[in-house]
Amino acid sequence: MIEGKKIKKVFKSGIFGGKTVVAVDNVDITVYDGETVALVGESGSGKSTLGRILLMLIKPDEGRVIFDGVDLTKLKGRELRRIRTKMQLIPQNPEEALDPRWRIYDSIAEPIRIHKLADSRNEEEELILELIRAVGLKEEHLNRYPHELSGGELQRAVIARALTLNPKFIVCDEPTSMLDISTQASIVRLLMEFQKRLGISYLFITHDLELAEVIADRILVMRSGKIVDERSLH
């Protein structure tokens, strides 16, 4: 379970921070285990900022982020890094999510190497093959570079990378808004299938209310940095 309590984030711009934008304004949010919460709102409503704060990729100015009973805002670099294996981000634009000069294989292998999950090269390869089959890619895709894959294939690769560390919580930041409709359907189905199998909880950021209604257990509506509406479905 992940919880944000009284989260506030102000962005300053201009010389001496003359202009300020309150991106997230005193927000309380909870995502329970195995739950899909859809965060809907227009661009600029602060939904992506809130998602990144829950992952501690952006530090909040005020408030706390509590993940499995641990207050993440109090943690230091190394402890935070360890906990971060349990939380992942699937960004909107898969082309920017992967290093263009790396083969898909290396991009997926990177988290395994950083966190030393495989004892040998063979073990690493086995892990990766299992993952990419699970997301519907083929072995041949691994040797390619990001520009040689279609949008849907890339997003599958990004999902495979996010799943390497067996996360419990994933923030999906408009993962399908750059994709075709039929590709969107297959990517969303894939994400739902993993949730059922692995019990992951999702914060699904989208501006597509129809999509939110189909996939989410709860919908939160965000406007000007505040959560203005909450609705339970199912």
Partner: peptide, 18 residues
């Protein structure tokens, strides 16, 4: 297949790839 893959019409993907 295209219409059925809309969220409001069942979100059913078309099998295979282009």
């Amino acid at each position: 297949g295209l219409l059925d893959s809309l969220p409001s019409r069942g979100l059913k993907p078309i099998k295979g790839f282009q």
